[in-house]
Structures are given as C-alpha cells and as structure tokens.
Design a protein around this nucleic acid. Structure first.
Length: 927
RNA sequence: ACCCGGGUGGUGGAACUGGUAGACACGCAGGACUUAAAAUCCUGUGACACUUAAAUGUCGUGCGGGUUCGAUUCCCGCCCCGGGUACCA
C-alpha cells in the first residue's frame, strides 16, 4: 500500500477538529506546562518556510510534553495592530481591519496545513475590542500607580496622595514652592504626573515626518526610521510614556533567575546600562555656579586636568569668556550642522575652550573647561571630568589640545592590563596613594559624601518608554481631557488640558471609524479627523505596537473572560510561560516591555509571578537562496554561470540580473522560456548556454518577497507532505542557528517516511505481526526511546531526526515488522510527524488519538552491553581494536590486549610504561 | 572598539563529562531491478601516498603554541565570519 499523505493529512486535520484533540482545560491532577510561540504580525504576504521553524520546534516539544503526562497550554494568536496595515490603508483606503482579517485567515489556513497542536479556542487578536479592553484596563492600572522606592514596588496612586496630604508636602509648582493642601485640583493632577507609571510629559521625541509618527528609540536606527529609512528629527511633543526606568534594577536582577541565552541577557543588560558612580560638584572659578559631573571613577579625580561639557550644556553660554565667545559660537554651530550619522561615523577629536576654569574640589587646582561633542547631553549630567591618564577619549582630547596629563594609576604590576581595566595602585593622589583601584573607588565615594561635594549615583542608559503613537491602527488610550484652559499651566503647548482616566466600566473605548487614515498633519493621529471623538475630548494618540504584545501570554490562560484579563484561579494554575520561542530581534523591545508589565501587575497583586518567560529559545532565521543571471554589460547577452569565467577579464564587465527562483531547478538550471515570459524585456537577449543548459549563480540572503527567493510552505507540503516538511525543517540543523533553505536535502526525509511506512505495509498488504521481538530488536527500540528523550529535552531536533533514520535503517536490515517494536516507535515519532503516526496508530487497532497516548517508557535493561569493542591505542594512536567483557578488570584487559598481534608490532618490543584503561571507552598503551 | 555566537569532507551537519573525528542526510560514482524512466535496493565516497588486490601508512576539526597517556573539546596568543551595542564618562 502506498503512503498517501494527502488523504491522511486531510482526514486527520478534520478528525482533530471534530474530536477537539488539542483543546486544553485546567486539570489539577496533572502538572502544567506552558509552551508559547511569539505570535506573528499577520502580513499580507503570508508565511514563508522561515516563519514556521520555531513553531515546528515548539509543537514537537508541546506534543512530547503532553505524552509525558503534562497538561500543556500551547496557544496561538495574532499581533494584529501595526504599521503595515495602516500604511496600506493610507495608500489604498482599505480599512486595516479588512486587510488584517484577510491576512489572519491566510495565516490560519497555512498553519493548519502544517499540523500544529494549537488550542485555537484560545486564539487572541490584539485588535479585537474584547482583547484590547484589557490592554486599556492595564493602561489604567499603570496610570493609576506610582513606584514606591521604599517598598521597591508599584503601588496605587492613592497611597501617594494620602502621603502628600498627611505630610502636607511642599512641592514645586512652576518653580515656586507650594504646600500640597493649598494646591488646586489641576495643580495636584499636574504634580501626580511626575509619579504615575503611565504619564504624560513634554519630551523630545523622534519625529518622523514621512511616517507622520513618533518612533521609539529602538525603532530608530542610525538616525533613520527602522521601517522605511526615513529621516528623523528631534521635536518636543506632549507624549505618553511608561516609567520603565523605575524598574531598571528589578529588570536587571530578574535576569539572573531566567534560563535565557547569555547573549540575550547581555543585550538587555546593555540596554538598561546600569553604571555606579558619583555626582561631583566642581565650582566654577570666580563664579557662583557649580558644574555637576557624573563619573564612575571618582578615584581618578586627582588626575582630572580639565572638564568637558556637552555643547548643549545649559551653562556654556554663561561661562564663556568674552575672548572665547566667537570660538565657542563657531564650534556650537559646527556641532549643530553635523547630523547624528556624521557624529557617529567620523569620530574626530573636536572641541573648544570656554575660557572658564573650575576648581578641583579636593585640592583646589584650577582646571580649564572645554566643550566637545563626544560628551553627550543626554547621558549623565552632560558634563565630565576628564582624566587623560586613564581614559582613551580624554587622552586623545588632551593630546590634541595640549592639555597636561597626570598619571594617577600605576599599572606596572598588571602587565597586559589596558587603560579600561580597573586595576593598579594609586599614585599622585594624596590620601589615596598606595591603594588598589577597587579600594580607592570605595574610599573616594565615602570622601565625596562626607565632604559634601557630591553624592553616590547610579546612572542608567535606559530611558522611559514612549507610549504615544499618532496613528490610527492601535488601541485608543482610554483617557479624556478636562478642559481647564489655564494660561500658565505647567504643561505648556498647543493644549493645556488635563487627562483623566476613563473608568473601567467605560471600557473598551472602541476605535472609531474615520474618513481618512492619514495623520492629521499637525502631529495628531487620524483620530483627530473624527469630529465625534474630538467633541468627547478623548485622547487622539493611540498605543504603540508593543502594548498588546506586552501581556498577550496572560490572556491565553482565560481568553473569553469578561470580568478580568484572566481569572485568578487560571493564573494560579498556568503561571508563567515555561518555554518561549521566538526570534532574537525582540531582545530589547517586546521582551523588556512584557517583563515590565508583568512586574507591575505582580506589584499590584494581579499576578502570582513577576517574570513572564522562564526559558527562552531563539530560533535562527531561515535565509533564502536568491538566483542571478550573468549579463554582459552593455550587450544584450546572458551567459550561463558555468562558463562565465571565460568572460571575466578586464575588457568585459559582467552584471547580475535577479530571477525568480521559481524558474530554477535544483541543479541551478534556468527555465529560460519561463524567465522571458516573466521578464519580457529580455525576450530578444542572447542566452549563451553550456551543453544546452543555462545555469544561474546563487547568493544566500534574507528570504523576502522583493528578492524573489521566497519558498512557500504550502508548495513544499503539496509535494512532500506536512510531516516531511516538519521533519526537514528540523533536520536542517540546530534550532538556534540561521541557515539557508535548500530543498536538495528534503528527499532524504521524504524517503525516510516512506521507509517507515513500509515497515507496516508491503506493496499490497499490512505486514505487522505479533511475534515476540528479539533482544536485538528491543535494543534498537530502547536506544531510540533514550535518544529521543534526551534530544527533545535539550531541543536537539536535528539529531532526533537522524536517530529515527538510523532506527528505520536498522529495522529494515533486521526485517522487523513486529508490533511490539513498531507501536512504541509510532509513539516516539508522533510529536515530529503527527499525521503518519496518527494513521498508523489507528491501523494498529488503537482507539483514540496517538497524540493523547503516553510516551513509551525506557527500559535500560535492553541497553546493557555484555561486551564492548575497545579501540586500542599505542602512544595515543589507534592501532587495533578488541572486544572485551563489560566487567573486565584492568589487569585482565592488559593481558588480553598484549596478545594482539598489531599491538606487539607497534610496541616494537619496548616495555609498557603506562597502561590506560577507561572502562567502556578506550585502552591506551604508553611505551 | 566592546559583548555574545561560530569556524569540522564537495554540501547541511554529528561527536556524552577530554577517549575510535566525520553519525545521519544530500551530492557524486558504480551496480541491481526495468523495454525505458521514476521509485526502490546494494556498494563506495576526508586528503595524500603506496599497492594487482586485501591491506597499510602519513596528514587532517581556522592559524601558532601549551597542558595531557590522549585535545574538535581545556589554557594562552592570533586570523576570519555572523549577530548585537556603540563617543555612556
């Protein structure tokens, strides 16, 4: 009987749905396991073979865990708000909802074909009002909370209000001190904004004129928008932000508890960028001003020979002396003329002297004050004390401007230590002399504080996260403005309204219809085009893309709940995600925000855990293989790649023209007619072939529609079947590695599946027998069970597939078609190839789905070897081998080994100097 | 520049805690079956040397050193590739 995967796949897809095989409910008798894929943004292009790589891996793992007795939550949904659908809407007028629904339908159809075990009854879509009602609700919690540094957690804003009232605290209102109880309601609200976790403020944002939108820092690359590469300018706008900086330390500490790759943790650590140091005040000579600098190396202060301020520093204008004024103005103008890209690319040493001097707070030395663009306004205090002896950039600056260098650290006892290493003994540093750097730093921090010239300070690179988008296709921010119209409100700008949260009962605040999806143009979102919306004084900004994805893993636990984002008992049962699979491009965006939201909800008592994803695995990318034709430049001629070398000389220039990979077979031969049909402009070209064939050359690059190198899983499945597709994706290599899609190897997996099938069926009939298996056959089976167990646990799926191939080859050699061997094998293979195993499981006479059966138990007794074939080495080189009993003693082994003819030959009559015997491994004789 | 990965046959890749390097698969070559093709099956396949053959030897996991009876694995120095971050005081 033929292995008819088309019939089988169709039958069991239906069977699984009708019998709700993958529907999961809370079951307190079983341990839970939560396996999650990063949900996709459903793009109009559909899935290519790279997308399901992680999904296949997590599906195998989920199925395996289920068979091991776990109650597995394995859901899927869609990150459905976002820019591409909106861009498309702007261009075509099609409502993003329509585009999105269509794309989701395509995705679901494609996913179904691959045979995933998702519980689709738990599907979530972030653009669904029943879902984003709770995204909005969580926003209200953020708005209604502050971070209490004493308890080190978020608390309800009422606790802060109660404090202010009780203490009648004096607060700053427009630069004037004022007692809390004398403040107006509006002033109180304005002040609370400085504490709320979701807050509004005037911030410099990355304004992108082309997108009509503000972008988050991580959406900006090299001064251009990540999407589209449009220019970005800095602009002050009233924006919603999340106070993620309050959580910097906890986000950092939490990493220690997680099973994430070191590189992933490192990226988050770098992003948070914690550095411990001190703020130190330098008095300006002959003036009352102080310059505050941030330094991590207070110990080197005696080597500080100048200060450097950022050109934007507020004191620059006041400090500059009359004779230096023109120099400074010129330099500031120069810096302004340089784009961010230029500043990053060419790191020229530039700067200018202000003419002013500052006094070293420890010894009163007078040191010059410079400005330079290498000091950033946005980090620390925008001012540094420069120690050219112990900092590379300061050193270069000192060299260029002829400034003195005072050595303060003797590194002579640390050969090889670089200038960056915090190693050495202090010199020329008064009371620090002779101390180790580490001790000197600690001592100095104490001194700075006790002498009252500064304070300890922890600095972070992490900035608060912008939460406003001037976009249509996102969650409306559930806030209403009360028009107060006070002329001197602390929030100055085009509007002086005060935002008030909607009550939870008013949610969801449903995204209204608009006439145009274009931004209003004045910096507000398309919602400003809806008169009704504006009349109700609703916020016109919407939430950013990461809002819905920051908590979706919680909604899967209880997706239809109308009373809460998820019921407490369900949260208690499922807890956090045990295994999270996704691409590493979300290292600092999504993963950091999801951790933040989890911690806030935990602090407020809504969650029983404060880290969302215990274990994280990043699947690699599957790249595409693009194909190109060689074209002789300025001639209407293409040359087959196999003979192009003949043209590669100086007089002839060869160009490459991209072709769609559809027209190329797996021997890199181009279907010229199909190519010409696709690109008629080349129909009159000459195609120079070799031996009648026209070959193309190939390049590995990102798989993308625009590169015409996309392989659609639907096509692969139509040709080879879903089981084959799944196993081939795994067979390609380790899950975390990036690799090009190359379907040359797929025939190996395909023939494996047919070989497996033929253990059960001859050409005409069922051939499985009830004979008792031999020890040899049982050993093959249990060896397989053991290997699959080990491999799946460490997610080494490529080696699992190899093992299945080995097993089938061995059983074929043994001509084994015994039920006692094949039935457990079907179970082992079920997580990998869910269709064929379901069919064979039924054919073996079993009721119910194979995917609800238990994974076969390993019986070690079948694996015990009575003998081992030892390799015998002389002086470390393998020269012979000998079979010895497993329990042989070293002495007996030596005696046996010495009998071997080859051993005698290689020893050349020399005496045994040492005999190494590693049980079950190797024998080595040293002569 | 720094941080994290990685470098193994013609190709994708395998190798437990230091213990027979190259599993498994592709490709290639030869053979069987077939009118033929597909499918299937069998044999060989790291390089070099030697040999009629069986066999055998030398080299070989990016490069150079080291530790060890023994190194793809551990240590030191260097080269290259991929990813991330970047004038962060």
């Amino acid at each position: 009987m033929e292995f008819d995967f088309r019939r089988i796949e169709e039958e069991y897809r239906k069977y699984w749905i009708e019998n709700e095989v993958y529907t999961v409910t809370e079951d307190s008798t079983k341990p839970k396991y939560y396996v999650l894929d990063m949900f996709p943004y459903p793009s109009g292009a559909g899935l290519h073979v790279g997308h399901p790589l992680g999904y296949v891996a997590s599906d195998i793992f989920s199925r395996y865990k289920r068979m091991k007795g776990f109650n597995v939550l394995h859901p899927m949904g869609f990150d459905a708000f976002g820019l591409p659908a909106e861009q498309y809407a702007i261009e075509t007028g099609t409502h993003p909802q329509i585009t999105t629904d269509k794309a989701i339908a395509t995705y679901k159809e494609q996913l179904a074909k691959i045979g995933f075990s998702y519980d689709w009854t738990r599907e979530v879509k972030t653009c669904d009002p029943d879902y984003y009602k709770w995204t909005q609700w969580i926003f209200l919690q953020l708005f209604d909370s502050w971070y209490n540094k004493e308890s080190n957690k978020a608390e309800k804003i009422e606790t802060l209000l109660a404090r202010f009232e009780k203490e009648n605290r004096t607060v700053d209102v427009d630069g004037q001190p004022k007692q809390w109880n004398l403040l107006t309601e509006d002033e109180k609200q304005m002040h609370l904004m400085h504490y709320r976790l979701a807050f509004q403020s005037y911030t410099e944002v990355n304004w992108c004129d082309a997108l009509g939108c503000v972008l988050a820092n991580d959406e900006v690359k090299d001064g251009k928008s990540e999407r589209g590469g449009f220019p970005i300018e800095r602009r002050k706008m009233k924006q919603w932000s999340l106070r993620i900086t309050a959580y910097a330390d906890r986000l950092l500490e939490g990493l220690e508890t997680l099973e994430w790759s070191e590189s992933m943790k490192e990226m988050q650590r770098n992003w948070i960028g914690r550095s411990e140091g001190a703020l130190i005040d330098f008095k300006v000579k002959d003036r009352e001003d102080f310059i505050k600098v941030f330094t991590t190396r207070a110990d080197t202060i005696f080597g500080a020979t100048f200060l450097v301020l950022s050109p934007e520093h507020e004191l620059v204008e006041q400090l500059v002396t009359a004779e230096q004024k023109s120099t400074i103005d010129e330099y500031v103008a120069y810096v302004k003329s340089r784009s961010d890209v230029e500043r990053q690319q060419e790191k020229k040493v530039t700067g200018a002297f202000t003419g002013a001097y500052a006094l070293n707070p420890f010894n009163g030395t007078s040191i010059p004050i410079y400005i330079a663009e290498y000091v950033l306004a946005g980090y620390g205090t925008g001012a540094i004390m420069a120690v050219p002896a112990d900092d590379e950039r300061d050193k270069k600056f000192a060299e260029k401007f002829g400034l003195p260098v005072i050595e303060v650290i003797d590194k002579s006892m640390y050969p090889g230590a670089t200038i960056e290493d915090k190693l050495g003994k202090m010199i020329n540093s008064e009371f620090l002399n002779g101390m180790e750097v580490k001790d000197a730093i600690a001592k100095m921090l104490d001194e700075v504080e006790s002498r009252n010239i500064g304070s300890r300070k922890v600095n972070y690179k992490l900035r608060d996260a912008s939460f406003s988008r001037q976009r249509y296709w996102g969650e409306p921010i559930p806030v209403k403005y009360k028009v107060v119209g006070e002329p001197d409100s602390p929030l100055k700008g085009e509007s002086d309204d005060i935002p008030y949260a909607l009550s939870a009962s008013e949610l969801p605040l449903v995204l209204p219809e608009v006439d145009s999806f274009k931004p209003s143009g004045d910096g507000r979102s398309p919602l400003a085009n809806n008169a009704d919306w504006v009349a109700k004084n609703y916020e016109t900004d919407t939430m950013p893309g990461y809002a819905g994805s920051s908590w979706y893993f919680l909604r899967y636990m209880d997706p239809k709940n109308k009373e809460a984002f998820a019921a407490k008992d369900k949260l208690d049962y499922w807890q956090n995600v045990d295994l999270y699979l996704g691409g590493n491009e979300h290292a600092v965006g999504h993963l950091l925000y999801a951790r933040l939201w989890t911690k806030v909800l935990f602090d407020l008592g809504y969650l029983p855990f404060d880290e969302p994803f215990k274990k994280l695995v990043n699947q690699g990318m599957i790249q595409g293989v693009s194909n190109f034709l060689y074209r002789i430049e300025n001639e209407n001629k293409f040359v087959s790649s196999s003979i192009v070398d003949g043209y590669l000389h100086d007089e002839v220039k060869v160009d490459s023209i991209r072709t769609n990979i559809e027209f190329v077979d797996n021997k890199y031969e181009l279907d010229v007619d199909a190519f010409i049909k696709w690109r008629p402009e080349y129909k009159d070209f000459d195609f120079e072939r070799s031996n009648g064939a026209f070959h193309v050359m190939s390049v590995v690059e990102k798989m993308s529609k625009s590169k015409y190198n996309v392989v659609n899983p639907d096509d692969v499945i139509a040709t080879y079947g879903a089981d084959c597709f799944r196993m081939f994706e795994m067979f390609l290599g380790p899950i975390e590695q990036s690799k090009p899609w190359d379907d040359k190897g797929i025939s190996g997996v395909s023939s494996f599946l047919r070989k497996f099938w033929r253990l059960f069926y001859s050409e005409t009939a069922w051939k499985v027998t009830d004979e008792t298996p031999t020890d040899k056959e049982l050993k093959v089976l249990h060896k397989t069970i053991k290997k699959i167990n080990e491999d799946v646990e460490k997610m080494s799926f490529n080696t699992s597939v190899s093992q299945f191939m080995i097993t089938v080859n061995e059983l074929q050699d043994l001509k084994c078609s015994k039920r006692a061997i094949l039935e457990p094998l079907v179970l082992c293979l079920a997580p990998f190839a869910p269709f064929i195993t379901e069919e064979l499981w039924k054919a073996l006479g079993n009721k119910g789905s194979v995917h609800k059966a238990a994974f076969p138990a390993l019986e070690e007794k079948y694996l015990v070897e009575s003998e081992f074939e030892y390799p015998v080495s002389i002086n470390g080189k393998t020269r012979a081998s000998i079979a010895l009993p497993a329990d042989i003693s070293q002495e007996d082994a030596l005696a046996k080994v010495m009998e071997i003819e080859m051993v005698q030959k290689w020893m050349e009559g020399k005496p045994v100097k040492k005999f190494v015997f590693v049980k079950g491994r190797i024998v080595n004789i040293v002569v």
